[in-house]
Simulated scan of single mutants.
Amino acid sequence: MHPEACPCCGEAGLVPASALPRRGVLAAVLAGAGTLAAAPAWAQGATRSLRVRRQVTNDSFAGVYFRDGRYDREALRRLDYVFRDLSRAETTPMDPRLFDVMAAAALRLDSDETFEVVSGYRTPESNAVNANRSRRVSRVSLHMSGMAADCRLPGRSATQLARLASEMRLGGVGLYSRDGFVHLDCGPVRRW
């Protein structure tokens, strides 16, 4: 369930500067400035929409998830379902900044295509199983925090999507060209 106020949706989830040590205040200010500098032009208040379809189940979402300066809680719940861990049939509140990364990429690519989601949320158990099968799966994956998705954007190559996402510097980007998908997340900026 989504909290009534989270750092993404409202100020109540933010830590006051007075509660941070001096270095923590400086780090928070610099991190905030970096986030604003990297944020898409529409990030401050424009309507944001996304089109996604889960590759295996065909579950989908197409619509607005942010309007009037706030995330739409019902839209987020629907997106959580599309991005759920299929092997455990478990949902988690996805970080809405992931949807912002995906929407920004589609906007920059001038694409109205529907993202094909290969993998979204993973329970720690599902992630451990995947990591035991492949060295390419991180044991500390942001998939377990609801902050990552492996996806494709029809009409665009995985390389094209990964290159653009890397240029945007909104989070992590992994190119899996052999499998034809890109890992996008809203964590620290990095690429592989």
Rank of each mutant, 00 (worst) to 15 (best):
70 R>D: 15
70 R>H: 13
72 D>T: 00
74 E>L: 05
76 L>P: 00
76 L>K: 02
77 R>D: 11
78 R>L: 05
78 R>V: 05
79 L>G: 01
79 L>V: 00
80 D>R: 05
81 Y>P: 01
81 Y>T: 09
82 V>T: 10
83 F>C: 10
83 F>A: 05
84 R>P: 01
84 R>D: 13
87 S>V: 09
89 A>G: 10
89 A>R: 12
90 E>K: 09
91 T>A: 12
93 P>G: 07
94 M>K: 01
95 D>M: 07
97 R>H: 11
98 L>Q: 04
99 F>W: 12
99 F>H: 05
99 F>S: 03
100 D>G: 04
101 V>S: 07
101 V>M: 08
101 V>G: 02
102 M>G: 02
102 M>I: 04
103 A>H: 04
103 A>M: 10
104 A>T: 03
105 A>I: 03
105 A>L: 14
108 R>D: 15
108 R>V: 08
109 L>C: 10
109 L>A: 08
111 S>M: 11
112 D>N: 14
112 D>H: 13
113 E>V: 01
113 E>N: 09
115 F>K: 03
115 F>V: 04
116 E>A: 07
117 V>M: 13
118 V>A: 06
118 V>C: 11
119 S>D: 09
120 G>C: 07
121 Y>Q: 04
121 Y>A: 01
123 T>W: 09
124 P>L: 09
124 P>C: 15
126 S>T: 08
